[in-house]
Amino acid sequence: MAEVEYLNTDAGRRIAYHRTEGKGPWLVFLGGLKSDMEGTKAIHLEAWAKSRGQAFLRFDYSGHGQSSGRFEEGCIGDWAEDTAAALSALTEGRVILVGSSMGGWQSLLFARAHPDRMGGLVTIAAAPDFTEDGYWASFTDAQKAALQQDGQVELPSDYMDPYIVTRRMIEDGRTQLVLRTPLDLPFPVRMLQGTADSAVSTERATALLDHATSPDMRLTLVKDADHRFSDGTCLKLLENAVLEVMNP
């Protein structure tokens, strides 16, 4: 297996990545919160891209995986900077983004800022605006008070160890929201969502579908699939979604 490489960004962060040269457009996987580039979907897509001779990139945001920094120090805006830096330095031309969970939000932020680079978008349980509509909206008064006083609260998860949500993550998230203002996605979009996902609801998927404008945007609901979306059936659906946006 190829050794991990590193990109030093202008923001002073060291981003770990795996990059495979090939034909365009570049296929780029954007992982979820506290996930890393060694997950099942990222590895599967890399192998699939290699079999097609397709250019492919996977990387870890700062505070994730093998990149520099601590998770608790990061926020949505930092990871958007990491994404923009990685795509600028490590890919050329049009890109097809595959964004999983928080990576779906990151892919929308990149698409909004760089529509000229987008060839297509595939999301898996996309979680735009979750710091506000998920975390903050569900916090008790005691949690909100602790966030203000201590600067952080600890939350459990069905899919990972308990993790820290910081006041900086909440406050920065409010500057990165994509569902409060018009969101134009002038390229093919495929959204994949499991109905048994306990981290991201089907309502969140339909909210994004209703809010965004696109000439070719479709949502596929997969009965009983959970947030991991990593079994054989789901991975085949992911491959097909990439092909659809790549060859509309």
Rank of each mutant, 00 (worst) to 15 (best):
Q106V: 02
A142D: 13
M118P: 03
R70G: 04
G119T: 07
E92C: 01
A84L: 09
K144N: 10
I124C: 10
I96R: 09
S88E: 14
F110N: 03
D82Q: 11
A137E: 13
K144I: 10
D133H: 14
Y135H: 15
T83C: 12
T83R: 01
A111C: 06
A85I: 07
A111N: 04
R112D: 02
Y135T: 10
E132P: 00
V95H: 01
Q152G: 00
A80M: 11
Q149M: 02
I124F: 02
G99W: 07
I124W: 07
S100P: 00
G103W: 02
D150N: 14
G93M: 12
C75G: 05
G99M: 05
Q148C: 04
E81W: 01
A111G: 06
T83K: 01
L90K: 09
V122E: 09
C75W: 03
A85C: 06
D82V: 12
A111H: 00
D133Q: 13
M118R: 05
S88P: 00
W136D: 10
A113W: 02
V98S: 10
A146E: 12
M102L: 15
V98L: 00
A80I: 01
A86S: 10
D141R: 13
G104H: 07
A89S: 13
S68L: 08
A127W: 06
G103V: 12
A84E: 14
S107T: 10
L97F: 08
H114R: 12
S107E: 05
L109G: 04
D78G: 01
A113Y: 02
W136H: 09
D141I: 07
A142P: 00
I96H: 04
D129L: 11
D116M: 06
G74Q: 13
A126T: 09
E132L: 13
E92F: 02
Y135C: 08
A85V: 05
I76M: 14
E92H: 08
V122H: 07
A89M: 05
A89Q: 13
D150R: 14
G120I: 08
F139M: 15
E73L: 11
D141H: 09
G103E: 06
A125S: 15
Y135P: 01
D116G: 15
L121M: 15
R117E: 08
E132A: 14
Q149G: 02
A86D: 03
L147G: 10
R117H: 09
C75Q: 08
G120N: 07
D133K: 12
D141F: 05
G99C: 05
T131G: 02
D129W: 03
F130A: 13
L109S: 10
Q148W: 04
G119F: 02
V98I: 10
G103T: 11
L90I: 03
V98K: 11
A89G: 03
G99I: 06
A111Q: 01
Q106C: 04
G99H: 02
G120Q: 08
T140F: 04
L121H: 05
S101C: 10
Q143I: 11
S100M: 04
R94E: 11
G69L: 07
F130Y: 14
Q149H: 10
L90W: 06
E92G: 11
